[in-house]
Design a binder for these strands. Structure first.
Lengths: 165, 165
DNA sequence: CATAAACATTTTATGCTTGAAATATCTGAC
DNA sequence: GTCAGATATTTCAAGCATAAAATGTTTATG
């Protein structure tokens, strides 16, 4: 492998192997492009077919998995978005009658959020379509390739900073 | 292979092979997670190191490649974001002195946008860091895997709707 | 030349996103 | 019991994103 030779600069913006680095940069741009492409198609489909958005769908998907509902903070940690962001999305979903806020016993700070019956029904319809849309857009990737790609993506997502190691 | 039996519903949300479809759905979630992870790290790094954002960097990167600058509409088409969006980002970059708007001769509708000298310098510093950040975050993917992954991502991004075919 | 259509850009309304500050409540140390 | 710190949520300010409407300019057609 590498011989650890002659890397003595402050490393602030140095890169181990320039060619590999450029290749990774191109890979990142493609990763971003593919993701944005799929996201854009989903956005449009959700809008035209259900008059809703991806973030709203994400919230509903998270809640559909847990009958008892989730606290606002749990929701924001599951979805990995900020607390304040969840507040706004949930507000609108409650207005639309697909979610309810339920006070938590013995802790007046917290609220649980749950899907209503109407919310569950709406979600089921959207989830089926969502899966079909994805299936079509990722149709170019066949079963044999999925595993390898999944592993690589997982490594990217789980990589933590050198600082934290 | 499939025997084409009994698929007689309207196909509105049917899926060819349920198992493959679920696998693709999981792959999509991982793709999204990896992309969001990298984007989030970049966002934070850009903010703390340069007090700027990814969209601003993207605009500067597009302009750095073209000495003569780009028209607003070219910029929005290169970056694949809406016209109105570009207006706001460019406004702020002009306020900060990294971009200038230059009227186009013989067409008073259009404006060209260019990096200033200060903008070019700032961009060079940011681009070096950016590459190093990506190199570190995608370090888990090695050269031998990059090609295959790139190809798959390209297929995903280029896939057009059946409608358009 | 008039004027309709096309084009380039900006404006507007709405929603998502973040980080940070504010508000309210709970818990534990004393 | 009091009160400092932790916890849960909301509010706020700023920026990014879209689609659609508005504004101004150019071009082509009669």
């Amino acid at each position: 492998m590498s011989d650890h030779r002659a890397i003595q600069s402050d490393q602030l913006d140095a890169v181990s192997d320039p060619a590999a680095s450029k290749a990774r940069l191109r890979l990142w741009l493609k990763l971003l492009k593919a993701t944005k492409h799929v996201e854009g198609e989903l956005r449009e489909s959700f809008r035209t077919d259900f008059d809703t958005t991806l973030p709203r769908f994400d919230v509903m998907a998270a809640l559909d998995r847990v009958e008892a509902g989730l606290k606002m903070s749990e929701l924001s940690s599951v979805l990995r978005v900020s607390n304040g962001n969840v507040t706004g999305i949930v507000d609108r979903l409650v207005d639309d009658g697909v979610l309810v806020r339920v006070p938590v016993d013995h802790d007046r700070r917290a609220t649980t959020v749950r899907l209503t019956r109407a919310g569950k029904e709406q979600f089921a319809a959207m989830a089926a379509k969502h899966e079909a849309w994805i299936d079509e857009m990722l149709g170019a990737v066949d079963a044999s390739e999925i595993q390898a790609m999944s592993d690589q993506l997982e490594r990217i997502a789980s990589k933590r900073n050198k600082k934290d190691t």
